[in-house]
Design a protein around this nucleic acid. Sequence first.
DNA 1: AATTTAAGCTGAGGCACCCTCAGGATGTCA
DNA 2: TGACATCCTGAGGGTGCCTCAGCTTAAATT
Lengths: 195, 195
Amino acid sequence: MDAKPYIAQRPKRADGRRNYDAILAAARKAFEASGADASLEDIASQAGVAIGTLYRHFPTRAALVEAATRDGLENLVAHAERLTAGPDPLDALTAWMREAVVHFSTFRGLVGILAQSMYDEGTPSHAMCSAMHRSGADLLRAAQAAGRVRPDLTPEELFDLLSGAAWVREQAASGRDGSTRFLQLVLEGITTRDD
Amino acid sequence: MDAKPYIAQRPKRADGRRNYDAILAAARKAFEASGADASLEDIASQAGVAIGTLYRHFPTRAALVEAATRDGLENLVAHAERLTAGPDPLDALTAWMREAVVHFSTFRGLVGILAQSMYDEGTPSHAMCSAMHRSGADLLRAAQAAGRVRPDLTPEELFDLLSGAAWVREQAASGRDGSTRFLQLVLEGITTRDD
DNA sequence: AATTTAAGCTGAGGCACCCTCAGGATGTCA
DNA sequence: TGACATCCTGAGGGTGCCTCAGCTTAAATT
């Protein structure tokens, strides 16, 4: 019923903290290299730790992904707050979206996890996703209030567009990166037509 | 060097054909239910066949996916040709895109495979993807020639938008389907602004 | 410093899936 | 009715997931 998501926390004992950090570092490297489905046993051995230790700190793959991406996404939310203060709401929105796409495609498979977490509470990343949702919605509302973005666009739709762009970027990992242009097309598509 | 993609073909002996068909039917069902990463051993046993037999007919998962989706995509290409003859090139393009999104998201994981195959020869689905690329490019060119779609849009970009929409649809499998609206936004975004 | 104890660590082991291949079965053609 | 090419089988080795019983150790207590 309550389906509490497991959020990994830095353990109390010194050796525990050491291992926690080592695992996280190894995981970031492995995810970057092999995507979100990198071998957990590889990550453990890369961190110089037995597999059981990894599972002690991060009982599920999702928990590990969440921990590995938390910082980046926190920054994204923080940056949104800074942008809100800026002069041009459309510039703020587009800048934030560009940045979001980059973060969403940090490694292969991440967008899918985030998209899943967005509307599924009981997922480790849900909290962070909700925060991003709020940030994006605020920026969107501001741009709409300024009459710069079509008023019928909902935050959910904005995130679909964002995720789509991130997914395209993720696919194109090797070679051609269509995501910049993708986002440009989308942005030009949703801005109001008074140019 | 030549990296010939393996395209499964219906075998000569009667028992071979029987099994080939049974496997294909089981695969379609399994992919629909569990996505492109459904268990091949399950598919084999569902088809009443040993695992080695499955591998005989479809040496890789990609080959099986290709065979399982060939018909649908062939229809898509055929439909494009019929649409080309129609009166309104923009209607033709949008109708085709809508249909394409549906086919691309027949089951979870397919868009990714197709997006990969699009520019990677030596993949079983590459041939079919190229055919679709041509179809889409033709429809796009026609709509652009009629001045209905922004002239700087390339076929590659069109497919990125298409794939993005299909991916969103695939994600939303359970519950909310954002892809219709996604495609609408994209389409309104790329049409020329004379309304 | 010795004791206690809770936090942490280990890695074997069961399970699922992947893919191969040697040996056996059988459809087909003459 | 051979004879042969095609086809089928399923055990087996490899990888990865995840658990858990037993051991180790940091740190709090006396």
